[in-house]
Amino acid sequence: MKAKVYVTLKSGILDPQGKAVQHSLETIGYNAAMDVRQGKLFEVTLADGLSLDEAKKQVTEMAEKLLANPVMENFTVEVE
């Protein structure tokens, strides 16, 4: 089973990296890119035998404890 954890900056938190990427997109002609927010994607391969519920529970804990910093980041978990 695999899980994906998307970590994104909370709204209101300045994202200078996203801003730099947006500027660069503008430079190469993509004026439609009004705003860019940069985040992280974690792909976690899980041990066999976990139930879907248990997998979701564990991966959510992983995100809360380590993968995201709740002061500045939100996260979403997908298990498949």
């Binding site: 938190i13 300045l14 200078p16 990296q17 730099a20 910093n69 002061v71 500045m72």
Partner: peptide, 16 residues
């Protein structure tokens, strides 16, 4: 800060 002994967060410098 990460360990929770002090509040807040230290982000990338605004100049990158």
């Amino acid at each position: 800060i990460e360990a929770g002994l002090l509040p807040g967060v230290l982000m990338r410098n605004r100049s990158l």
